[in-house]
Design a protein around this nucleic acid. Structure first.
Lengths: 152, 152
DNA sequence: CTCCGAACGTGCGTATACATACGTTCCGGC
DNA sequence: GCCGGAACGTATGTATACGCACGTTCGGAG
């Protein structure tokens, strides 16, 4: 086993754990930060996806969140109960339901966006802007490659 | 707002989503890959942490997995029920319990390691080895920076 | 030796993540 | 117009992720 092969092998086992570790760390920070607003990290992602103002179907929302329709439904039920989100029948497709932010939801999102600013800043600053840009690009690339993989 | 500031701002909002997207994609791939062995992606991580052969306390195990002691306990209960893991009283500290792989657990882990090889390979190959090494390094750096953040 | 704070595991409650199965609606081919 | 497959949402079950409260044990200060 050559030295080069060893390094590659080590890299292959470290990269997944590094990805997992970074994600979990970010998730925990976000949850802690948003807790006093009564919102979870995942709920923030959902609200952010809706914050563009468009009315999205649950399916489309799930796609944009890299999430699961079934999970999104559960989240919407909770958020609707809290009055942050409205679900209306789709204007033309009666199978679908659209989700939009309520006024309270928009206000809440603005608060959350501010509250999360220091996390976003810390993430970019802990690397450099240039490295962070590379990181972001590589992560997207990675997600695409993994998403296209078949079960062989 | 200068152009430079706009770019930085966009980066700050993209990076978290990119990290989340990549992690979830990896997690889904892993779950799908390990499903026929009756093991989840997270359980694989736990088994891998124990595969060094050391007997770890649940706390130490949680630390190495970047995970939560409470979660680790639930996982151990399931894995013990499946006969992949043994939990024994700690030799000197009667508060603690140690976890080790059973023979079946070791065998299972070897199977899983092979089954996951294509994922690890795909992750590194979808970038280049050099970029993957950088990515890994940056992710570790990111996790550290986030882990050390206080609530301000 | 005693006592108190810290560390370990446990149990419980809530929110995700996802598969799977199911009912309803849509739409393209006929 | 009919029909069968595809798309959408719903419902249920299992496994994570994590906070929090609790009981037990450890270890050091006095």
């Amino acid at each position: 086993m050559s030295r080069h092969t060893d390094q590659l092998s080590a890299l292959k086992s470290q990269l997944p754990l590094a990805l997992r570790g970074a994600y979990l760390a970010m998730h925990r920070q976000s949850d802690a930060r948003f807790e006093k607003y009564g919102v979870s990290a995942e709920q923030f992602v959902l609200l952010a996806a809706l914050s563009e103002g468009e009315a999205l179907t649950q399916r489309e929302l799930a796609k944009r969140m890299s999430s699961d329709p079934s999970t999104v439904r559960a989240m919407l039920v909770l958020l609707e109960k809290q009055g942050l989100v409205r679900r209306c029948p789709h204007p033309t497709d009666s199978r679908a339901r659209t989700a939009t932010l309520s006024t309270a939801g928009k206000r809440k999102f603005r608060q959350l966006w501010k509250a999360g600013e220091s996390i976003r800043t810390q993430m970019v600053d802990s690397l450099t802007a240039k490295n962070a840009a590379n990181l972001s690009r590589m992560l997207v690339q990675l997600a695409e490659a993994l998403g296209e993989m078949q079960l062989e």
